[in-house]
Simulated assay, not measured.
Amino acid sequence: MVGMEADGKMGVHLDVSTPGYAGRLEVVEGPTGRRVRSASEKARIAAESLMPGAQVSAIARKHGATRWQIYDWRLRLRLGELVLPESQEPLFAPLLVEEAPLPRVTPKPPKSAPAKVEIAINGMVIRTTVEVEQLAQVIRAVRASR
């Protein structure tokens, strides 16, 4: 094998061309990829994720965060550890309460003069005066007695 040397263990070879060469080392300057966010920015992002229809994964992608960070910030926002800045306009719509419609009341028929009723059952006759509202009750009572 050309360019392969044994490392002292049987059957294991290292891909090095010269002894002591560890490989290529590249130094990258600038931001490390880790973002430092202020508490107000975390609160704003968490509040955005609580909006109706918002998806945590989409909010995380939009802001370069992870879903778990967003969930943590939401919890901290609920616990009061993160607070939205006072100068920022509210992110939630104001609550509107509509009054429930009043239940429909069926109008009672106007009181009329008492009606004279005569009921004949098995040779027996009952004569009485009854208000119109009570006439149905009288008829039900007579039917139930049969």
Rank of each mutant, 00 (worst) to 15 (best):
P109T: 04
L95Q: 15
I126P: 10
H63V: 01
L84W: 11
A100C: 14
L50Q: 12
Q69W: 07
L96V: 15
E98N: 05
S57F: 10
E81W: 09
L75D: 14
P52W: 08
Q55N: 06
E81Q: 14
E89V: 15
K42M: 09
E98A: 12
A115L: 13
R37E: 02
E89W: 15
E98L: 10
W73T: 00
A113Q: 05
E48D: 06
W73I: 00
E98R: 09
Q55E: 10
R104T: 11
M124I: 07
V36F: 02
R74L: 11
F92D: 14
A47C: 11
P94D: 13
L82N: 09
V117T: 01
I119F: 05
E41D: 07
L75Y: 07
S40N: 08
E89R: 15
I59M: 04
L75P: 07
A46Y: 01
Q69R: 03
S87Q: 15
S87A: 15
R78P: 01
A54R: 04
E81I: 11
P110W: 02
A60T: 02
K62R: 01
K111T: 05
M51D: 14
A43F: 01
V36K: 12
S40G: 13
I70C: 02
S112L: 05
V56W: 11
G64V: 04
P90Q: 08
S38M: 05
A93F: 13
Q88F: 09
Y71D: 00
R74Y: 11
T66S: 10
I119N: 03
I119C: 07
A58T: 09
P109C: 08
A93Y: 13
N122R: 01
A60M: 06
V56S: 15
S49I: 03
D72R: 09
P107F: 05
R37G: 03
A43D: 01
L102D: 09
L82D: 04
P110L: 03
I126N: 08
T106S: 04
P109K: 08
W68M: 13
E86D: 15
K111E: 06
E98Y: 11
L75C: 14
I121L: 09
P109E: 04
Q55S: 09
L102I: 06
A43W: 00
F92L: 02
A43V: 01
L102P: 04
K62S: 03
A60W: 06
K62G: 05
K42F: 02
L50W: 13
L79M: 07
G64N: 10
I126E: 05
M51N: 13
G53Q: 15
P107L: 08
R104C: 06
G53V: 11
V105E: 02
T66N: 10
S49D: 06
A60H: 00
K111C: 06
P109M: 07
A65K: 04
V56A: 13
V97E: 11
E99A: 12
Y71H: 02
A115P: 10
V117E: 00
P85C: 10
P94W: 08
P107K: 08
E86Q: 14
V97Q: 06
